[in-house]
Amino acid sequence: MTKKALFIDPGRCIGCQACVAACRECDSHPGKSMIHLDYPDPGNSTAAAPTVCMHCSDPVAPCAQVCPTDAIPIDEQGIVGSASEELCIGCGNCVHACPFGVPKLDLVEMLQSKCDMCYDRTSQGKLPMCASVCPTDALFFGTQAELMQKRPGVQAVDIFGFGDETVRTNNAMVAPAGKNLDRIPGGYSREPDSRE
């Protein structure tokens, strides 16, 4: 594999917040962290779940598709950027359409922002800020071959299931190698009718 991507392994995340702090140092959004670090079961578990933009490739970036002003850029490599300042009207479509819950909306500035894989850095061959400081490789940036060389007991999965729908992404999640997975469950499995 020659493609470089972020490989996310929540199982290795210790919730130290180093990625959150480092993200704030990125030149493209100084002072604002674009990464989400959630604690799924606080009080009962130390588990933590980092969320970066997965840069959806199929369907291509739902956030950009629902943007009424074409404000969200996608480059030739499929990297989905933050909304353009001159075009974003702060409507929030992208925030709610994203199946991963990634984009952030500043309601004062009426401006969306999101993880852009540290475009400034990765375009210069550097690691994204989060991956550069992660002490446990819960956020690993590199090729899949590099990941497998470092951690032979894992597999990378870049397909997510949301109900009957699947979303393919440029970044991937890490799963145990022996696990028979055709997709990573996205958390959305309920049928609309069952919620009534």
Binding site: P40, A47, A49, V95, G101, P103, F162, G163, I184, R190
Partner: peptide
């Protein structure tokens, strides 16, 4: 985009639901 009803879940809960699914199934 066939996950339109997912918008009824707030972004934070989407992430938590995905985290729970990872813990339970992956």
């Amino acid at each position: 985009l066939g996950f339109g009803d997912w918008v009824e879940t707030c972004p934070s809960c989407k992430r938590l639901e995905r985290g729970a699914a990872y813990r339970n199934h992956v």
